[in-house]
Structures are given as C-alpha cells and as structure tokens.
Simulated assay, not measured.
Amino acid sequence: MGVEEELLLLGHDGSPAPRAQEVLEGADAGDGPLENEFMEEQLETATEPARSLTELADALRTGRAGAREAAARQDALVAALATSPVAFTGTTVSRLRYLRARSAFGITAWEQLTNGCHVHVAVADDAEGVAVLDRIGPWLAPLLALSANSPFWQGGATGYESFRSQVWARWPTAGPTRVFGSPEAYHEAVAALVATGTVLDEAMVYFDARLSARYPTVELRVADVCLDVDSAVLLGALARGLVETAARAAEAGEPPPDAPPELLRTAHWRAGHSGLDGDLLDPATWRPAPAHDVVGALVTHVKDALADAGDLDVVTELLGALWSRGNGAVRQRTWAAAADGDLHAVSLQAADALLAP
C-alpha cells in the first residue's frame, strides 16, 4: 500500500500561504517526492509502497518532514489540516488544466482548498479491483469518521467534523458508486461520464474509491488528511484490510452487499457531520448506531485480513489511542477553546503536530 497526503502551506501567522511553486522550485532530492495540488496553498506527498505498518509510518513521517523542510526554505510552515481554520482566498496553480477547471466550475473550484488522504492498495488486476470496489462501499463512511479533521471553514465553526467532505461533494462525480460487476462496466461508466463534457477528463472522475489510472491499485479517496501520523497509519491499515477482505469475498463467490448509492451517500454525509462523536449508519442495518459500535464492526469485518498481515495488534493499539485523544476535528476544537477561539493559533498548533505520533 501507499499513501498520498495533501498538506496545507501556512505563513507564520497561521494563514494559508500561496507558496507551492516557490517551495517546489527550492526543493531538493532529500525532501522526497513533492507535487502541486489544485491550489498554491497546498503540497502533496506520496510514500513508496509499504508492506508493513512500520514501513508506512516511517515513510509518512519522512514525507511530512521533507515537505516541512522544503517549506521552511521559503519561510512557510506545513500542517496536515483538511481545511484551513483561517479564512482564505485560494490561489489556483497556474497550469492550464487547473485554470480550465477554475473557469468551468466557478465557486466549486475557487473554494477547493481541501486536503485529503488517498490510500492505494495493490490488486492483481482490474477484475479484482472492480470486485473490491463493488464490496467496500458500506465501510468507507467509517473511514471518513475516523479521519475527520476539518471542523472549521472560512474562519468559523461549521457544525461538521469533516467539512472538507461537504466542499468536495460539490464536484459532479464525487461520492459513492453502484455495483459495476466487471471491469468493462466500470470503464464504460467512466467513459460515459467523460463523454458528457461535464468533467475535463478521466482524472476528474472523483469516486470515493476508484481504480488508479497510474498504479495497479484501488485508490480509497474518502478520508480527510489526518492530523497526525498514527491516524494516517491506522487509516492505511484499515484500508488495506478492507481491500483484502473484499478480494477474498469475491474469490469465494460471495455477492456484493446490497448497498444502494443513496444510502451510501447518506452514510457518508452522516460520517462527515458526526465523526466519532455521534451515531453513524451501521452497514448491517442502515440504522443509526454509536460510532464506537460501527467502528468496532469495521474492525471485526476486516479482522482476519488484519491478523494475516500482522496488523491486528497495532490497529487495536492505534484505535485505542484515537478513542482516547479524539480525531483531528476534536483536537482542533479543543485547541480553539484553549485559545479563546483564535483559529490562527489552531493552524499553528497543527503545524507543530505535523510529525507527532
């Protein structure tokens, strides 16, 4: 598995800083792979494929450290925040594709300063990949709840744990998908979306989970970027467990679950709204249940895959720590309260936490 993280560039006052191009021009090989994202206030890092969670944790920490070092040369900070707590006016990266998107999609593009975490998990081929996509949908919402790290937007509280998920949902192709049944049906669906002329190209088919166009992987795209490394490792472990569990189910001839897209979309909305602090939708019943119970059901669902990978004890430990300290949204709200509502201080505290466990 490998993980791509979108990170927020900040000035020393905690406001988003449009310095991505400067950072990339001044980066060196020791900073690791760094790329643009849609806005000048963002950087993207990517790990090499990892087999163990220790490898993944080291790679994530190295990537974040490289981004921080490259940003520091341009007098900027880096934070793993899924949205900026501080009000901003985003600066679109000056690339033709991004400028076309800005022109075509209006405020959806103008305000798209959001940072996600994309987990890539290897699959044998497109047939296995589509079989996985057809089976993991009900469990993606709990991953969003675990990662939720965007309670503030444009300088104020939103009432959501992941407001990034609300902003991202404005894109016409974002969200859950139906059961495809075959690689041919999947690729036909993608081609049909592109043929509408509504999106610019295949890369703008923003399903919650999709076949990667660059790697032999399934790409899970539902999560906020995680505030700390341990939460990102937990996300990666559960994502790999989900993919492996789904692949085994398909190989055993088990049919995909009955999960209509309208219920998946509602479950996603609820996870973004409530995070771990309220009820989520239980994939077994599609009724509300405490987040602790739904996350527990997720772990039970992937337990065999976690155990076989040697991940179960680590996941249990990381999950216990997450319940104790709260996800990124909880911690941001705690910091805001301690700072008497100063959201600049929240951004700066997040920058300090970039490499924390």
Rank of each mutant, 00 (worst) to 15 (best):
G278N: 01
A157C: 04
V121N: 02
V225I: 12
S274R: 13
E128I: 04
P288V: 06
I136W: 06
H301V: 10
T334P: 09
D279Y: 00
L140W: 05
G106T: 02
A192C: 11
A252R: 14
K303I: 07
D304N: 11
L144Q: 08
P255N: 04
E4P: 04
R68F: 02
G11M: 07
V295C: 05
D224C: 09
E22I: 01
L34G: 05
T177M: 02
P216A: 10
E48D: 15
R51H: 15
P357S: 03
R178N: 08
A356H: 15
D308N: 13
G272R: 03
A232F: 02
K303F: 13
A50R: 10
C117A: 15
G175T: 06
T158V: 02
A29Y: 13
S165M: 03
L238A: 06
S324P: 00
D13V: 12
L318I: 04
A104E: 06
T217Y: 01
A71L: 05
D125M: 09
P216I: 03
D342A: 13
A76R: 05
L281I: 09
R51L: 15
P288D: 07
D134I: 01
A195N: 12
A239E: 08
I107Y: 13
F207M: 02
V346T: 00
T198P: 11
T173A: 08
G11Q: 11
G320V: 08
V194S: 06
I136Y: 09
D277I: 02
E40T: 04
E48W: 12
E4L: 04
H118F: 01
D58L: 15
A109Y: 03
L77C: 08
Y206Q: 10
L9A: 04
H301G: 10
A191C: 13
G156L: 10
L10I: 10
A339F: 10
L318C: 06
S182R: 07
P142I: 00
R135N: 00
T285P: 12
R68V: 01
P357Q: 04
A337Y: 13
G326C: 08
E55A: 14
V205F: 11
A291M: 03
S347Q: 01
R135E: 00
D258M: 03
A80M: 12
T300V: 13
L60W: 05
A27Y: 09
E25D: 15
N327C: 07
L53T: 10
W323M: 03
L34C: 09
L43D: 05
E40K: 03
P255L: 00
S231L: 07
V314H: 06
Q349N: 14
D258C: 08
